[in-house]
Design a protein around this nucleic acid. Structure first.
Lengths: 208, 208
DNA sequence: ACTTACCTAGGGATTTTCCCCTAGATTTAA
DNA sequence: TTAAATCTAGGGGAAAATCCCTAGGTAAGT
């Protein structure tokens, strides 16, 4: 018997999930929450085996709850359910220590499977997403050694604010040529060839 | 008795809706679809009073089906259900002739109310969205400027890919000066002053 | 002590962007 | 059927970015 708590600010999704899981006798839903506050309170009463967590809870990004959840309930398995299908975003979530990820489009049978896998201590990622993540495995490895230095990160931030070399030079008390050098080395590391691609890549990789 | 067809590529949402509406005896769900093709076929068999339509159907934007739906089934009421809560986007949908809009976060009672309203020929917008649309009435003037034309959107996409004016000119068979003009008018509309801010703004506003 | 990475700065040239304009053709809305 | 918006294209010039380089100082590890 696996106990479940659901946290999602869309009642429709909550009832949808409940309905899906009704058929499985080994899964028992013990809590339903629509807000982060309600969730944290509920966990104090009783700790489920698996938490089905939507990324968007009314007004707050539930990912911000992760560190707290992990610290207070280290044995709690967290299965994130969301609409996002960007492999980079999901990879970041997994890095943050969630135990599984599925989209809201998952088939009932797979959801049950996901819960069981996560419960058993496996990391579960919905098959379709898993494929897409595989497709981005190489860029993922690349991204690791594409680590920017402190100065480069600093300049990246300002570039992303729309500052030009001269603005940045003034703010950091540097020559604009120095800023240019940093900028070009950022381009090289992130394998982009202009500022537009840089901003996009930085956003996708969560560098800003 | 109001007959309903549901079109949503997320089984979870479909079962959630069905579950929500089970309690209401005056509402009868006669069709469930996960793809646009299935939907169009189903409508040929039997026309429901109200169509609950998700914006995202497997692989296609269901909004593209609107003209066809309206032409073939002028008496069909279309209630769009989605996760989008951007008032501007919703206003555009209403302009395109949908009869109602709710998010997936709607309460069961309100969903039933929405269906009844739409069935009776009213335009229904979820209360929370309605408020936010009201709140954007004044900036609506500003937003009018901020709406990009077709050509501008096209160029925005390419700019976000890192193409420069010359690349874009070649791809679209234009002069690079023309591309430049479009680019500058995009800058003006989005109130940015260079490509870096543009990419960032476009990402944040979901324009790409 | 020595290599390596990092930060700094610049010369010089080319390409692209950015800013100020005008202006005709076409499309759309009032 | 006007009026307004959009799409097209360009002149001319200033500013910035991009692409070649070199090179000294500093900091960290081996």
């Amino acid at each position: 018997m696996i106990t479940i708590a659901i946290a999602d600010d869309h009642p429709m999704v909550v009832t949808g999930i409940c309905n899906m899981l009704q058929a499985y006798e080994d899964i028992h839903i013990i809590q339903r929450h629509h807000t982060g506050a309600s969730l944290m309170q509920g966990l104090q009463q009783q700790i489920p085996d698996v938490l089905l967590l939507d990324i968007h809870l009314a007004g707050l990004n539930s990912i911000t709850l992760l560190p707290q959840l992990q610290q207070q309930y280290p044995q709690l398995k967290i299965l994130v359910i969301s609409s996002i299908d960007n492999p980079f975003v999901i990879r970041d979530l997994l890095k943050k220590g969630i135990h599984g990820y599925t989209t809201k489009g998952i088939q009932p049978g797979l959801l049950q499977q996901a819960i069981v896998e996560v419960y058993k201590g496996q990391i579960y990622v919905e098959p379709m997403i898993r494929e897409r993540m595989l497709a981005s495995v190489l860029p993922a490895a690349k991204e690791t050694d594409a680590r920017l230095t402190k100065r480069e990160m600093e300049i990246l931030q300002l570039l992303c604010d729309g500052d030009n070399n001269y603005d940045i030079a003034e703010k950091l008390f540097l020559s604009h040529r120095t800023v240019e050098n940093h900028r070009l080395s950022i381009y090289f590391k992130l394998e982009v060839k202009n500022i537009a691609q840089l901003i996009k890549t930085a956003q996708i990789q969560g560098l800003i």
